[in-house]
């Protein structure tokens, strides 16, 4: 068998195993929390009899392992269970909201990834001169400020003072793509600012590290221009570290949008999760947790696989 197929299938198997572990961990942790859904529904003043009745009705009196296995089988069949508070099917609610979150994350990624790599290349080209320092200063500033603060600052200046965009990023199915893009412009901008710095700095560091290599000297002695040297000879070897940091940031875009979604009242996964946590809607929290874990593990797996594919020694064995 080609070693690459072996390596990739190993990564895939490992990813599935990891996801299983994550689901068990999430389930276990919500079990370990004091109080349960029945208590949350009935409130502080509930009588023990009422609690016991509701637990039996919800199936909470059975052993945890049984419930975990049931829950897991349900997930594998696409059934995430029912919300405790509004009795709606969780899969349906998540489906729409996950779509919204992914839409926001994708827009932010489409803007930020190429921009970060381009700025990284530019910083290398003019390293230790003013363009490099300016890029570093701006991106470091934006990454150092908490995203909710950036969000509120942008809302104050751009939507309140200038009135260019709405401070609420409401989207619904009846809107056209253009309208949607207009609605999410501000949250997408905030997310871009937050993830830009790390990707840009990683690109810069990875390529600068490679610029010390002997083959870069060879390329310079071929009379290539600095940008040709960077783009043709340094970049192909920097793909693996860059993809890793890009994937980490993409995962952050999906998982970490919670705060930004709340700031802009965006109907995504984050809002949904925060609501569920305040209402102690355990099945919804569990479902959101598993979806986030899947996204995180999936993207990191993709990064691993791309790193393997980018290595010519593995692609073309002796």
């Amino acid at each position: 068998m080609h070693p690459i197929i072996k390596l990739v299938s190993q990564r895939l198997a490992l990813g599935i195993l990891l996801l299983l572990g994550a689901s068990a961990l999430i389930f276990g942790l919500t079990e370990a929390l004091p109080g349960d859904a029945a208590q949350a529904v009935l409130g502080q003043s509930a009588t023990p009899e009422a609690l016991a009745n509701l637990r039996e009705e919800m199936g909470l009196d059975r052993p945890a392992l049984t419930r975990y296995v049931e829950w897991l089988t349900g997930i594998l069949q696409g059934d995430l269970g029912q919300s405790l508070t509004n009795k709606l099917d969780i899969a349906d609610s998540i489906g729409k909201r996950l779509g919204n979150t992914l839409f926001l994350a994708c827009v932010a990624a489409i803007v930020s990834v190429p921009l970060a790599i381009f700025l990284g290349l530019l910083a290398v080209r003019y390293r230790n001169r003013w363009p490099d320092k300016l890029i570093s200063a701006i991106t470091l500033t934006t990454v150092s400020i908490p995203e909710f603060l950036i969000g509120y600052v942008l809302v104050y200046f751009i939507s309140v003072k200038l009135g260019w965009f709405s401070s609420l990023a409401m989207v619904n199915d009846s809107m056209s793509l253009g309208q949607k893009l207009y609605a999410i412009a501000l949250p997408a901008l905030v997310l871009t600012l937050v993830v830009l710095a790390q990707m840009m700095r990683m690109t810069r560091a990875a390529i600068l590290n490679l610029m010390q290599s002997a083959y870069i000297e060879t390329a310079e002695l071929k009379g290539l221009s600095t940008f040709q040297v960077i783009a043709r000879h340094a970049f192909p070897n920097a793909i693996s570290p860059i993809v890793n940091v890009v994937m980490l940031n993409l995962a952050y875009l999906v998982v970490g949008v919670v705060v930004v979604e709340v700031v802009f009242v965006y109907p995504g996964m984050g809002q949904y999760l925060v609501d569920a946590v305040t209402k102690r809607d355990v099945p919804v929290v569990l479902a959101c947790g598993v979806v986030f874990a899947a996204v995180y593990i999936g993207l990191n797996m993709v990064a691993d696989i791309v790193s393997i594919l980018a290595n010519p020694r593995l692609r073309h064995p002796k």
Partner: peptide, 20 residues
């Protein structure tokens, strides 16, 4: 460089780009 004058380095293994 690369036209009139060219260069052969000590370690070809390091001087060839591994990705090309």
């Amino acid at each position: 460089r690369g036209g009139e004058v060219t260069y052969v380095s000590q370690s070809a293994a390091a001087s060839f780009n591994p990705a090309k």
